[in-house]
Design a protein around this nucleic acid. Structure first.
Lengths: 152, 152
DNA sequence: GTTGAAAGAGCCATTAG
DNA sequence: CTAATGGCTCTTTCAAC
């Protein structure tokens, strides 16, 4: 990935629907060559897709939290993992090192829904312990801006 | 947001560069009406942008971790927050409730770089304590798929 | 990588419901 | 207010170099 690809990538992180023509002008290449570079960035897996970014608060889910969970010992974590992601408010989850087995990220309509999710975890999902941390504020420059910085 | 908008949104989460023509065919509306609905979803803030999704591993940063940090007491957290996000590997950060003040998400080239970041935190950034948790695996269905599920 | 032409997509004014 | 249509312009794509 050369310097031109880095510019292309940061422009596509900033505006994923920019036209190849505008992108080409930005990097001083022909639209054809620019489109070909984007295609190769996708083929190589560096760009895994183009997505609309959704504001959960605007969608009526303003309450974000991390829920750390510890599962009961046993080799049956595969089904438990699948079940965790079927919970209505769960955005993502990761298996992590340390005291907790997983950290889920949830976006809830209100504290009542968060309570529901946390209360639903023990038992049917094999969860033996949880720890909930509310996201009070996401730091400015998280996400797209941070990615652009990592390219530089 | 009606049922048609939900389909539009989930299609744009799946493919943020889909043409209004194809999108219109999917929801059985004219391209004009479809484009107008997308414009309104952006105006209302539900769609906050369109972005290329970058695979950090393909970019040479396969090692993800959460770094929980506790800052020294004091009212000067604003500059400390800004400083945290200037660290090279930091993707995002959030102010959270509980034992830790912030949780950062980082993507590193290798353990050596992760060590650098963790070692750099105490002192110049006002960090008095950290806890690092490696992301061993992100659960299948995290991200775009989860968002689509939340709409249903 | 570039060019140029054909096919495809977006945009806007107009009209209808 | 929301949607469809037609015509014009801009963009993407593909062959040839």
């Amino acid at each position: 990935m050369d310097a031109i690809d880095k510019v292309i990538l940061s422009e596509l992180i900033r505006d994923g629907r920019v036209s190849f023509r505008d992108l080409a002008e930005r990097v001083r290449l022909s639209p054809t060559a620019t489109a070909e570079r984007v295609r190769k960035l996708q083929e190589s897996g560096i760009i895994s897709g183009f997505r609309a970014e959704v504001d959960m608060a605007a969608l009526g889910r303003p309450l974000k939290a991390f829920i750390d969970v510890r599962l009961r010992p046993g080799p049956d974590h595969a089904e438990l993992e699948a079940a965790l992601l079927t919970l209505p408010a769960v955005l993502s989850g990761a298996h992590v090192t340390g005291r907790w087995d997983y950290t889920l990220t949830v976006a809830c309509r209100d504290v009542a829904e968060l309570d529901e999710v946390v209360m639903a975890l023990p038992g049917s999902y094999g969860v033996v312990e949880t720890n909930t941390r509310l996201l009070l504020r996401e730091l400015a420059g998280s996400g797209a801006e941070a990615l652009t910085r990592l390219l530089g």
